[in-house]
């Protein structure tokens, strides 16, 4: 299994966590897992919506010490 790429998007407002995830998803290979870290409360809804619409796989989403940790596997 390849190493999980962690994207630290905590305390950022522009371009913001989902834009950061999209940027790094473009660089990733199919099957790679990316973990997005975000302090933006909207991330917990925004990321799964995009992931579902585009067809990637949401592995997990949990909040630890006010930071959202969202793991996504690139599916296509």
């Amino acid at each position: 299994m390849s190493e999980i790429k962690v994207i630290d998007a905590c305390n950022t407002y522009c371009p913001g966590p989902l834009m950061e995830l999209i940027t790094y998803m473009k660089q990733a290979e199919v099957g790679d897992v990316l973990e997005l870290l975000s302090t933006d409360s909207g991330t917990a809804n925004d990321v799964p919506e995009w992931v579902n619409k585009i067809g990637h796989e949401l592995i997990s989403s949990e909040q630890i010490d006010e930071v959202w940790h969202i793991k996504v596997r690139k599916a296509k």
Partner: peptide, 10 residues
Amino acid sequence: YPINRIHSIE
């Protein structure tokens, strides 16, 4: 626009 709202800044 690429994300769920019309600009990245809420």
